[in-house]
């Protein structure tokens, strides 16, 4: 398991253009997400588990699969604060780190834009086992899509401004034990600024 899934997939998909380049990218930005759980314990008091805007770093590797398209593997780490918010105020539940790994296809669009679409998994890693995370810190499959604007800084080096959307279903063993059923759709939106180096 030392080799990332990206490498396995990259080897499995043969590049059709041999001169295409391997790329690496590093970016930083912020991620925000919708509520993890929302509940009306009493009719006039809706309470929700929310994450703050999270500082985010992302590293990625791109492997050419055609003259214009790449297979992109990316690791994205965001660190938010988790709060339980209701009409009485917000309760601090500590830090909540998320680790996303995704494999995406990336292709060109007009106006120096690139699209990304793919899937992967998101792992929740709370600072303390409390609230909904009392019994476990789940890992969930997710779908993701994004858009990146690029500008060449010099040959082999690009500036990238990216927007990323992700969707996954959230629930935990604690919530299931407490009688919650199904799962919450969680949308996440990230914006990053970074550079990409090609070899």
């Amino acid at each position: 398991m030392r080799f990332p899934l990206f490498v396995i997939l990259a080897v499995a998909v043969r590049p059709s253009v041999l001169e295409a380049q391997l790329t690496a990218r590093l970016s930083a930005g912020a991620t925000m997400g919708t509520s993890l759980v929302a509940d009306a314990i009493l009719y006039d008091d809706v309470v929700a588990l929310k994450t703050s805007v999270a500082p985010t770093i992302a590293i990625g590797l791109g492997y050419p699969i055609s003259a214009t398209h790449k297979l992109l593997g990316e690791l994205r780490i965001a660190s938010a604060t988790l709060t339980g918010s209701g009409s009485a105020g917000a309760n601090d539940l500590g830090a909540l780190r998320t680790i996303e790994f995704s494999v995406m296809a990336e292709g060109p669009l007009p106006y120096h834009l690139r699209f990304q679409v793919g899937g992967g998994a998101i792992k929740y890693s709370p600072a303390r086992a409390a609230g909904a995370f009392l019994d476990d810190a789940p890992i969930k499959p997710m779908v993701t899509a994004g858009l990146a604007w690029t500008k060449s800084l010099r040959p082999g080096l690009e500036l990238q401004v990216g927007g990323r959307w992700g969707l996954h279903e959230f629930t935990t063993k604690t919530l299931e034990r407490r009688g919650y059923s199904l799962a919450q759709r969680v949308h996440r939106l990230g914006i990053t600024l970074g550079v990409e180096r090609a070899w």
């Binding site: 759980v37 929302a38 509940d39 009306a40 314990i41 997710m142 779908v143 969707l167 996954h168 279903e169 959230f170 629930t171 919530l175 009688g179 919650y180 059923s181 199904l182 799962a183 919450q184 759709r185």
Partner: peptide, 9 residues
Amino acid sequence: VTACADIVP
């Protein structure tokens, strides 16, 4: 994925 329902308390 988007077709799934939200969590039910």
